[in-house]
Write a protein that binds this DNA or RNA. Sequence first.
DNA 1: GTAGCTTCTTGTCAAACTGACACAAAATTG
DNA 2: CAATTTTGTGTCAGTTTGACAAGAAGCTAC
Lengths: 232, 232
Amino acid sequence: MSDWEAPRVLLAVDLVILTVRGSSLQVLLVERGVEPFEGALALPGGFLRDVEEDIPAAARRELEEEAGLADEPHLEPLGVYGEPGRDPRGRVISVAHLAIAPRLPEPVAGTDAAQAWWKPVDDVLSGRLELAFDHRRIVADGVERARAKLEHSALATAFCGDTFTIAELQQVYEAVWGAQLDPRNFYRKVQAAPGFIVPAGDERRPGNGRPARLFRAGPTDSLNPPMVRSAQ
Amino acid sequence: MSDWEAPRVLLAVDLVILTVRGSSLQVLLVERGVEPFEGALALPGGFLRDVEEDIPAAARRELEEEAGLADEPHLEPLGVYGEPGRDPRGRVISVAHLAIAPRLPEPVAGTDAAQAWWKPVDDVLSGRLELAFDHRRIVADGVERARAKLEHSALATAFCGDTFTIAELQQVYEAVWGAQLDPRNFYRKVQAAPGFIVPAGDERRPGNGRPARLFRAGPTDSLNPPMVRSAQ
DNA sequence: GTAGCTTCTTGTCAAACTGACACAAAATTG
DNA sequence: CAATTTTGTGTCAGTTTGACAAGAAGCTAC
């Protein structure tokens, strides 16, 4: 074993960037500009730039280069995908990350070289949209992570802007979970969770009906009691 | 960028193997036989054997080679730890896994070359025990994962043997959470969770007092309603 | 300006769940 | 057989949930 040498692998970073647009949960996809899978839809991502680059730093770099999201959205490691044979260029280990972007009305700022679009995750999960590599599984894992974290953490606020109404927050829950919630019970629940949201002045934002109070994300990240997704 | 070549890194697999012994949560540690950190305590693990080896396969191989756990315990990916400089031998990316072993009275079957011990996780988390590399953080993340999963999944049954009493299951919760639970409410709760545990014959196992009914793990992995760890 | 519509916010109420605890049941020990 | 220990069942008050009524506060149409 003294002359044995550990194998070396290529390290990539892939991003599952989620947002809520309208009433649907969407994921950012790019068109691949190089082989393999040239022209196919894929998650934004790329190889480590050099052997000294930190993994979170690489994720933030790709977030800016490929998605044009310079401001810091929520970003967390999601998992490792390294099946042999998943990439014809050799043994590639991909470290997937989950990013949450606030509502962006624009169809995504133009990116590096390739084009990028927001696509409904339902189209990806149902197979209506084909993705390169094993990216469909990565999206599925990212969505499931987001769904689970909405129950016990304040992740939902990352989908919103700096300030938001309770109804907007509810739309996030409904889009991510794909379920309808009662506005009145939702209102009661989020207010009761200590530290989840705090009033942002008594300003209001006009809509169609009665104006709503504005809130911003509170200090605590863990929700107790949790939000429950049970019977519809 | 055409003559640019992606950097290659070393890939390692580390294992956080947890079990409950007596009333404390313990983790399996080995004494390192080679530099760096020779002689120090560390998590079992090692490099990928060859460039074609699958990551879960490598985790199972280390589980058997270094921990002597040939039968299949619960095993799941935990996270990636790849900070530059964490290993003097070069850029090493470690894929940590969480394994749950049932109660083993023996102080661990003798392993490959080095020795192995069960150590209370409290000693690791408090810093009373020094670990090589960033393994203390990995243990902390593994323990937190286990604590969280006990709430919403049937993971607790992985700590038990094939059949177990409700009191034994409660000891698992108490050891992992580090909290006391009311036996009568616990009894009611686990019975009410559909598919969590199912009666295993009407056999019983003598103890000191009244004999207890035996159960085995049920079909469902997700607990609804969840077990809650709140007030002490 | 008033009627009508929309959305936000506050209540109400029965059913379910939780946490604390009394107590019966079934074994072992002295 | 009495004492002890642990398992299993029941009770009960306080809290939370889910469904829904109704008031409050804006906009639009006539």
